[in-house]
Simulated scan of single mutants.
Amino acid sequence: MALKFAAKLADLVEDEPLGVTIGEERIALYLLDGEVHATHNVCTHQFALLSDGYMEDGCIECPLHQGRFDIRTGAAQCAPVTQPIRVYGVQVEGGEVFVDL
């Protein structure tokens, strides 16, 4: 496990994605139903930051073409996206969020 610091838990707001960069990786963090989730922050359809998108019903909608991904699994939910996004393991300790890269 390669846990890397991503953000303070206090920086996360329910249903509002937060984009962070860890090394060279663009990561999107989500607080959903009190649990923290992390995905790759770039849409698999075309380059757009998912953290600029809209969260609803456990999915993140790409701001460019409105494709949706499941935040928990990374699965593509509707056209035009067909490829899933990467999901990362998350650990919260002492008010800090760590992502397993």
Rank of each mutant, 00 (worst) to 15 (best):
V87P: 05
T73K: 04
L49E: 14
E14K: 08
F47K: 14
E24C: 05
F47A: 14
V36R: 05
A10H: 05
L50T: 08
E56K: 15
D70L: 05
V90Y: 01
L29I: 13
A6V: 08
Y88N: 07
H37E: 09
V81Y: 03
L101C: 12
T44N: 10
G58D: 12
D52L: 15
E25W: 10
G74F: 06
G74R: 01
R26W: 07
Q91H: 09
A79M: 14
M55F: 05
F69E: 06
C43S: 04
A2T: 12
V20I: 12
N41P: 06
Q66C: 10
L3M: 12
E61S: 14
F47S: 13
E14Q: 14
D15M: 07
C62N: 03
V20Y: 05
G19L: 09
R86G: 01
Y54W: 15
E24H: 09
T73E: 05
G67F: 01
E56P: 01
C43L: 08
D11E: 15
G53N: 11
I60D: 00
F69G: 06
H45V: 02
P80M: 12
A28T: 08
P80F: 01
A28Y: 00
Q46M: 09
E25I: 08
C59W: 03
G53W: 07
M55K: 00
A76G: 03
E61P: 10
A2C: 06
D57F: 02
E16M: 06
D52E: 15
E16K: 15
N41T: 03
V90F: 09
G95C: 12
E96N: 12
Q77F: 02
I71F: 11
C59A: 15
Y54K: 13
L9V: 03
P84H: 00
I60H: 03
T44E: 01
T73A: 08
I27H: 04
E56A: 14
P84T: 11
